[in-house]
């Protein structure tokens, strides 16, 4: 399983690291930006991964991850030290991404915001676009996109962050039975989506699970 490797601090990997994390938090609370920078450095990967899997776009994931850390910085005084810092951060990121996905459905683009030639196909695709086109073929992305935001968050926390039902429930601010139900229904939806994709000709079937693309695989 491609489990996301959380910093040693969040896995309980040593008393020194836990103490160091607490020290960073204490210093950040006193206005030390460098200490908060250390926390960002330590947790940038899990937060970015969650945002990327939720939103499916590297650009949006970068924005969401940055926003997550900004919110964490401004709400640091409300952080409960009895809770794992990684869970607290992932909760902020999850809720932010769920909100973004819900807004995305109702997002209207003004004609004024679009350049007059925006409807024309660009003969030379940008590198990011190439990446996006590749990502669009990913089975994993397609599977995740077939899920509603709440279910998607539960699946990502379960598969990439290897959280228990109880931890997922805490992060998403719900009950364990709700998480059980979400994971069950998510699997049903993903299987239905995969069956639908298999029934379609070549284009989607060619994209295998093995050929996954990542922004910065590690």
């Amino acid at each position: 399983m491609a489990v996301l490797v959380l910093p040693a601090t969040s896995r309980g990997g040593g008393r020194n690291m836990v103490d160091e994390e607490r020290n960073w938090i204490a210093c950040a609370l006193q206005g030390d930006d460098d200490a908060f920078g250390q926390l960002v450095e330590a947790y940038q990967r899990p937060v970015f991964n969650l945002c990327y899997r939720m939103l499916g776009s590297p650009t949006e994931a970068e924005d969401a991850a940055q926003e997550t850390f900004i919110r964490a910085y401004t709400r640091l005084s409300s952080y409960d030290a009895d809770r794992k810092f990684s869970s607290w951060l992932l909760a902020i990121a999850s809720h932010y991404c769920i909100d973004q996905l819900r807004r995305r459905r109702f997002k209207l683009v003004s004609w004024d915001d679009l350049p007059p030639w925006s409807w024309l196909p660009d003969p030379a695709p940008q590198p990011e676009e190439v990446t996006l086109n590749r990502e669009a073929k990913h089975q994993v992305r397609a599977l995740l996109e077939s899920l509603p935001p709440d279910y998607r968050a539960a699946m990502i926390l379960r598969y990439w962050h290897e959280l228990s039902y109880e931890e997922i429930a805490r992060v998403l601010d719900t009950t364990v039975s709700a998480i059980k139900s979400r994971l069950f229904r998510a699997r049903q939806m993903m299987a239905a989506s995969a069956a639908q994709a298999e029934a379609m000709p070549v284009a989607t079937a060619a994209a295998g699970v093995g050929g996954l693309e990542a922004v910065g695989e590690g």
């Binding site: 399983m1 491609a2 489990v3 996301l4 490797v5 920078g37 960002v40 450095e41 940038q44 990967r45 970015f48 991964n49 990327y52 899997r53 590297p58 994931a61 970068e62 991850a65 940055q66 089975q139 994993v140 599977l143 699946m155 598969y159 990439w160 699970v209 093995g210 996954l212 990542a214 922004v215 910065g216 695989e217 590690g218």
Partner: peptide, 16 residues
């Protein structure tokens, strides 16, 4: 299997 074999994703350099 598809989900468990999917790689983790890191931000580009200079995130901090």
């Amino acid at each position: 299997t598809g989900l468990t074999s999917a790689p983790t994703v890191s931000p580009s350099l200079g995130f901090v």
